[in-house]
């Protein structure tokens, strides 16, 4: 077990935070790689809460450590300083589908159910239900290589949902897809997020994607990664990347992102 199920305490020293349970709480987290002599600071004093049911995107250029941060939250790595708490083990989706090619689509989902302790009799119907949820009802027996890129990511999403975690971590899951498929998957993700009430922490370098999906966009600076700015987005869902409001905010955020990137060219 990577993390113990811990809820944020009511007597938190920071008064500005209300006493709600957090899907994820990241407190003053720093991470460096390498030995003490040549330590490279990747993340510097990150504090971020994800509320239950909230959709947050982490946005940043290369080298901002956004994937590192996600790995820390997922429990695949441990921070150099600071603390991380999540309610249970989070589910994680990668840029690559990471489906196991020796199993069918349905069996991939059933493996997640099995590892969660779901009894044998319940696994098949639950896997079918999750496939229906991502609109792949007839694909239970399909092999991974028989599925298109978009279908693979939907099976991967279904497998992540099979973990029945309150928090879904997504590491640029749509970056390798073509634009049409990505658009469709944005709609699907929004629909599933609203149906399930999951909390989502979504990492991307695509500004429009961040604005299209999230309730809150967190911009990270690079080398080391620090929280540069945050935007709360109240454009009603379902949104489209083409919406004027989405485009307008994207321009503003892109400008900030470019400012962050330019700083690195100056010295």
């Amino acid at each position: 077990m990577a993390t113990t199920p811990t809820l944020a305490k009511a007597d938190d020293e920071d008064e500005s935070r209300t006493a709600v349970a957090h899907a994820a709480r990241i407190e003053h987290v720093s991470k460096s790689f390498g030995g003490p002599a040549d330590a490279q600071l990747v993340l510097d004093d990150i504090s971020l809460d994800v509320a239950p049911g909230e959709f947050v995107t982490l946005l940043g250029a290369s080298g901002c450590g956004k994937s590192t941060l996600l790995n820390l939250v997922a429990g695949l790595d441990s921070p150099t300083a600071g603390s991380l708490t999540t309610a249970g083990r989070p589910a994680l989706m990668f840029q690559e589908h990471a489906l196991f090619p020796w199993l069918t689509a349905g069996k991939n989902i059933e493996l997640a159910l099995r590892l969660r302790g779901v009894t044998k009799a319940e696994r098949r119907p639950e896997a079918e239900r999750l496939l229906e949820l991502v609109r792949l009802g007839g694909s239970y027996g399909k092999r991974v290589h028989e599925l298109s890129g978009g279908m693979r990511q939907r099976v991967a999403l279904a497998r992540a949902l099979a973990q029945d975690s309150d928090l879904l971590l997504m590491d640029e899951p749509f970056a390798a897809l073509d634009a049409i498929t990505r658009d469709v998957l944005h709609d699907e993700l929004t629909r599933i997020w609203r149906e399930t009430g999951l909390s989502v922490l979504f990492v991307t370098h695509n500004v429009r994607e961040a604005v299209r999906l999230a309730e809150r966009v967190v911009l990270l600076s690079s080398r080391p990664g620090r929280i540069a700015r945050e935007w709360t987005i109240d454009i009603p869902q379902p949104r489209r990347v083409e919406d004027a409001a989405v485009a307008e905010l994207s321009v503003e955020i892109t400008e900030e992102l470019r400012k962050e990137i330019r700083r690195h060219g100056q010295h």
Partner: peptide, 8 residues
């Protein structure tokens, strides 16, 4: 990594 996140 995928296996570890699934609990394997």
């Amino acid at each position: 990594r995928a296996g570890r996140t699934l609990g394997a």
